[in-house]
Design a protein around this nucleic acid. Structure first.
Length: 257
DNA sequence: GCGACAG
DNA sequence: ATCTTGTCGC
């Protein structure tokens, strides 16, 4: 099971805004934006194409749904595309969504869900940013450091930072580096993530918005994007995230009834 | 004061 | 995130 390694860095929603921001600077200090994985990124796969003799790593997707003033946090763990465990937790929400402080609203519910999990994932995908954050401590980084697990942030839109090129109409598989600017604590020009075109229409006037991928913990910007692309198959969102998304929705409808 | 902002 | 009808395409 995944255990909390840094209880001192847990997202306490009762902190003042200043204390939250200060904790985020501390988390960014502890975060490792370099590869420190327990597996070879090349063996990541969603299909039955893994290298013979080697077991693909355990990958977890985390997503949430909401019902009234409660959050449903779902975690789905899979290996080589096969689901091996899925859990969820329902938690009362205490604070509203504030850009830059997302992990203090949703972090507690996620920790609750991890307490239900028995598997130990080699990699965790979170919905939201990692290093692409004002203080380089988005939810993927916060959770990654608290559990000391390699993590990646997968967001649908850009929180901060500046793309080095246009991100419209990219070809499937393309990535555009996102650099830190004055809004981010990292030195200006640091690559803190990528806009990633995981899916695109063959032709026509329609275009799909790219995903925004950034390192959470123990992964660098290139590896984070390589992993997300490898875990994607036919849809905009990577499979682990899609599964968690679907399970969080399913759990919500169970509660609704 | 203005602008801008993951889920 | 959530709410929600309509529409395009396979």
């Amino acid at each position: 099971m995944v255990s909390v390694k840094r209880p001192d860095l847990l997202p306490d929603p009762g902190l003042s805004r200043e204390e939250m921001e200060s904790l985020q600077r501390e988390i960014a200090d502890e975060a490792v934006f370099e590869n420190d994985l327990s597996f070879d990124p090349a063996v990541i796969t969603e299909g039955p194409l893994s290298m013979p003799g080697e077991e693909p790593p355990l990958v977890a997707g985390v997503d949430q749904s909401f019902l009234d003033d409660r959050a449903i946090s779902a975690i789905v763990v899979s290996r080589g595309g096969e689901v091996v465990e899925q859990v969820y937790a329902v938690t009362d929400l205490s604070i509203p969504y504030i850009p830059g402080l997302l992990s203090f609203r949703e972090g507690g519910p996620i920790v609750d869900a991890f307490e239900e999990l028995s598997a130990e994932p080699d990699l965790v995908l979170f919905d939201g940013s990692g290093r692409i954050h004002f203080r380089e401590a988005g939810i993927a980084t916060h959770m990654g450091v608290v559990f000391d697990v390699p993590s990646v942030g997968v967001a649908k839109s850009l929180l901060c930072g500046t793309p080095v090129d246009a991100t419209d109409d990219l070809v499937e598989g393309a990535r555009v580096p996102i650099e830190s600017d004055a809004d981010v604590t990292a030195p200006n020009g640091t690559v803190i993530g990528h806009a990633v075109q995981t899916r695109q229409y063959e032709s026509g006037s329609q275009s799909i918005n790219p995903l925004i991928v950034s390192p959470g913990h123990r992964v660098d910007a290139d590896a984070a994007t390589d992993l997300v692309l490898a875990l994607t198959s036919g849809y905009k969102l990577p499979e682990p995230t899609r599964r968690a998304d679907a399970y969080a929705e399913e759990a919500k409808s169970l509660l609704d009834a």
